[in-house]
Design a protein around this nucleic acid. Sequence first.
DNA 1: GCTAAGAGGTTACAAATGTAAACTTAGAAT
DNA 2: ATTCTAAGTTTACATTTGTAACCTCTTAGC
Lengths: 142, 142
Amino acid sequence: MDAKNVTITDSEWMVMRAIWTMGHATSRELIDAMNELEGWSASTTKTLLHRLIQKQAVAQHGGSRPFTYKPVVGEKESMVAAADDLFDHMCAMRAGSTIAGVIQSRELSRADIANLQAILAEKAKTAPEEVQCNCLPGDQTF
Amino acid sequence: MDAKNVTITDSEWMVMRAIWTMGHATSRELIDAMNELEGWSASTTKTLLHRLIQKQAVAQHGGSRPFTYKPVVGEKESMVAAADDLFDHMCAMRAGSTIAGVIQSRELSRADIANLQAILAEKAKTAPEEVQCNCLPGDQTF
DNA sequence: GCTAAGAGGTTACAAATGTAAACTTAGAAT
DNA sequence: ATTCTAAGTTTACATTTGTAACCTCTTAGC
């Protein structure tokens, strides 16, 4: 199952974060975690877990109760897919400054920074002078 | 009006992009643009425009018809606010690699890259060895 | 074997969102 | 002055999403 093909809602995402972090979990573990993190009732977590199973973001394992639930889509791929989807709906010309804003407000490790610097150095080799706006059809600068 | 305080839905965002790009527009101009871009009917665009006015993302100008509509919230700030909100709901530890994925799939100008490199160089001065996961309470690496 | 508790599944409902029709008002055209 | 068209406002409805109760089934405990 490809992370790009699964749309995870905000509340489902909260459940996924718990499953990704634990690697695999029982419904009791998820219910307790979501109650502590968000104050949700057990019913809420069960509903969201069921919806995630239906959209194949999560798989149910084990032959007897309590079942174990494991993520089908990876956290890293899902995060990138969600961020790409967001940026795909935004002005291409302003992606650079938007990414700059995000970087400024995130904590990044030395390894993260080194990785980003390497990627940017590579992109610099073929970077255009400017990126075209893609907001209107046949669009030029207004 | 602060961009951070206005939640713009996906469809409203498509209307905003048109208004931002034109700077100011009449409803006829927006109706034509959204019909060409998304295939929407005039009613759809009118409804979304009205909702944007209600949530003070857009302001109505002019004393007689046709009115002119102008954005109250800026595009740049709204993009950063939306991206920040997305990342705020994700694992802090993986923000770096997610940003890397986004950079790889976006077209960036030379100026964008230079700006990002400068920001990263500055962050590198105080970067931690690693960023803590913030997915579960009292969480450590699993 | 029976009972109780826990887990899993189904149903419920309000609000948000996407999409569009219907109605009212204003102004242009005749 | 009247009519017609466009613009603006209100209403409508289906789907999605958030949140949770209720019901059924399974398994642990006695």
